[in-house]
Nucleic acid binder design. Structure first.
Lengths: 319, 319
DNA sequence: GACCGTTGGTGAAGCGATTCAGTGATACGG
DNA sequence: CCGTATCACTGAATCGCTTCACCAACGGTC
């Protein structure tokens, strides 16, 4: 390009990025670029400038359909901002999460969006030091931004709905791998259940569909809940499958409540009553936060996403 | 690293890649690397070597759940081979497909996996010249490898099943945007229908769930088919939704046949009878082909995937 | 002991951009 | 008309690794 235009490489570089050049030079460069079908090499650019234009997306578990939707949305959103997403999947495993986070940093991404599997892991603060991290769902120390869900509110919506319809014995099925006292989701569930006078039992570690289906089988046969509250719509799908295999009707024999409002959930029979997180809002917020942070601007910001109850028909009225 | 070990940068480079060094040097480098937590900068490496370690994945439309599964699988498969996937989504739009393919090449990916929206587009051969491309689903001129489905067989399986159960009037719902005479899927459908004496009607361009649901609404109200053959499970989901809204029962009032066997399909009520492509096999083949090609090995290879009929319960027996 | 092929290692030249200090013009205020 | 900004551009260094040409040492052959 330099010799094609008869200019110095520096001039070309400036022109291509639209700074500090005359109209004429600009035009000359544009013409030559069009002629040669020239595109600046992003690799060389990255080496020189230290910025790759890539944002790492570290998903907790892409098995989860909801996270798939999120990943697709984020990838598109970033593309609109002229960035690429590098999508990695921790498969619900904290150790792998650590390794992948490391690898993303070594890939020199400009920033990261994370749905932490283990938000308490000690490497997060350290990672946040070295590059802008935006977390989704959980709050991490030192992030450049976060999109959190008001889980307390979501759980309240779900459990109150169940209580209002007369349910008392509820089994909670959750995908969470790491279950600690300060893990908000679990804490809210038990606290809310207490407050509402519900009798609950919690089953954890349901990170994929088959595991969830197995667990649902067990609950439906052995347990005696009137309702199952699934902390992810995908788990509810497993419950539907198990119920069908056991010849149980929803909501006749067992009520099911989801959490996410995945696109599929309206298509089931009966439609899944669930808590809607407004995926679109989350995607937009995360993309905005991470690109602002990667561009060096913006101080730490926090976006709180408010849930809505989406009633469909999978919860029986026991009154 | 060079000065940390007292060796030349070249020696370090060799050692790190495990070639042409003594045991002792190897050990010294390993030790220093561990000590410093050193990881070679992939950017600089890419600039010098011309290989980025990234494979572009250009999806036809990530709206489609089946393609989501595929993308997730491929991304994981590549990670196991120490490569990263750069996932892009053409959203069913040929123009965007062209642009994204271009962008991927400009990103200097080592290879590409493509599910073409428009396999007849003139830019493919040209693209295949400049980097190894592996296509999924459709055959492209000049690819380094391809994983094709025996669509003729798949269509035969589906339509024969419908015919065997006594169906004669069938509406076909397909996501395909570009419908040309040499587009195999469509060609096979009409040819097979003719052969089997079926009376079919084809509705195209159903690239997302809401569009599919609308179309299904229309078909169920206006048309008079006994069965609907959906050329993607996700479209069948739209039919389920429409049927539910119209108070029609499946398979009582209308039979539904899918194509893909998405994980969700077994969870619907009734389970969706569909054609199973064995996603796992496709993923493995694609990953293998593209990494072989990117490593410079391997001549053009073609893997043909054979479909299976998966009967569940969404097709009525009219005999 | 001269000759040769191997092995392990060095030095320096890229890779293709960015960035910064510097250099003529041209414009402007006084 | 001089001093000083401002503007447009150039030259050269730099980013951190790979790669190629070359070299020294060594063991084995005849």
């Amino acid at each position: 390009m330099a010799q094609a235009t008869g200019l110095s490489p520096a001039a070309v570089s400036y022109a291509l990025r639209g700074l500090q050049v005359s109209e004429e030079t600009m035009e000359r460069v544009r013409a030559a670029a069009a002629e040669l079908g020239y595109e600046a090499d992003p690799i060389a650019r990255a080496l020189a400038s230290g910025r790759t234009g890539m944002i790492g997306l570290l998903c907790g578990s892409l098995e989860d359909l909801w996270q798939q939707s999120l990943a697709v949305g984020i990838s598109r959103g970033l593309r609109e901002k002229d960035r690429y997403a590098l999508i990695l999947d921790a498969v619900g495993d904290p150790a792998r999460e650590r390794a992948l986070a490391q690898q993303l940093r070594d890939q020199r991404v400009d920033g990261m969006i994370v749905q932490p599997v283990d938000p308490a892991a000690p490497f997060w603060p350290e990672l946040c030091e070295s590059l802008p991290v935006v977390s989704i769902g959980d709050s991490l120390a030192g992030t450049a931004g976060e999109v959190v869900f008001d889980n307390r509110r979501g759980v309240t919506l779900a459990l109150e709905h169940l209580r209002d319809l007369g349910h008392r014995r509820v089994t909670v099925l959750t995908p969470t791998m790491v279950s600690t006292p300060d893990r908000p989701a679990d804490v809210h569930v038990t606290a809310e259940a207490d407050r509402l006078g519900l009798d609950i039992e919690v089953v954890t570690a349901l990170h994929d569909l088959t595991v969830a289906t197995d667990a649902a089988h067990h609950v439906l046969r052995e347990g005696a809940p009137t309702a199952v509250f699934c902390f992810a719509d995908s788990i509810a799908y497993g419950v539907y499958a198990a119920a069908r295999e056991l010849g149980l009707s929803i909501p006749g024999d067992i009520s099911v409540m989801g959490y996410d409002d995945h696109p599929m959930s309206g298509l089931l029979t009966p439609g899944l009553t669930t808590v809607d997180w407004n995926i679109d809002g989350i995607v937009k917020a995360a993309v905005r936060l991470v690109s602002a942070a990667a561009d060096g601007g913006a101080r730490r910001r926090r976006v709180v996403q408010q849930p809505t109850l989406r009633e469909r028909g999978s919860v029986a009225d026991l009154r």
